[in-house]
Design a protein around this nucleic acid. Structure first.
Lengths: 115, 115
DNA sequence: ATACTATATGCATATATGTGATTATATGCA
DNA sequence: TGCATATAATCACATATATGCATATAGTAT
């Protein structure tokens, strides 16, 4: 019973994470970091077809990463929880350090080859 | 040029995130939080076939989420950067709050229906 | 009703997943 | 050096899911 609960939470967890697995969706999330945006704003900013953005927003909605508020004709999307930005920033920091280390390693290898 | 760089980093970022998109991989990551483990340990602990775990580990390796160190006959896997645990915990906290809110909302709706 | 905005659907293509069977790699010992 | 063993990775297959785009539908305001 407890195992099922754990598994369910894990599944949800993974579901949230799968919402982050596309570059366009990460861009959308960051574009919402400053405040709400509607679909067309995001689409024109990202230079993507509107249906494509809409589909990504649907995925983000289903995972409760963003919320939709209708305001007249437009629907504004906003982040459901800004901790997602902090989580992404943590991953970016880790990624940056890793790339830095790889670059350093490449330089050292190159120096060894040259020197 | 700068745009290409940004896109490349985003792609990498999404690649890292896609490594988190499977429940079994999240379990593997958490099972490595306490220290290194080899493939068979993880497989028996998770009750999954060894090739399945090996495949997930390959994905995690390709995304530099885990690193492999050979020690004699066994290969021990460890987390490349523990910030990934912090990022996952942030997402879990956000998810937990959200589930709590939903439960609260459900209770309130129920009270309204009953009372 | 009409124009405008946003969402949903259908299709083709591409990628992910789990599992059993097989192969590869490295170690340990004669 | 050569062989046996333990460990891990890969292959092959079926199934499932994700993606992009074009088109169609639904909802809102004037």
């Amino acid at each position: 019973m407890v195992e099922n609960l754990k598994e369910e939470v894990l599944r949800l967890h993974a579901q949230v994470c799968s919402g982050l697995a596309d570059p366009n969706r990460i861009l959308i999330i960051y574009s919402l970091a400053d405040g709400p945006r509607n679909v067309n704003d995001i689409a024109s900013k990202m230079e993507l077809p509107q249906p494509t953005v809409s589909r990504h927003l649907k995925i983000l909605r289903e995972r409760s990463i963003v919320r939709a508020d209708r305001d007249g004709q437009t629907i504004n999307y906003r982040l459901a929880d800004h901790r997602i930005i902090r989580a992404l920033d943590l991953l970016r920091a880790a990624l940056a350090d890793q790339l830095k280390d790889q670059a350093l390693l490449a330089t050292q290898v190159n120096e060894n080859l040259v020197g």
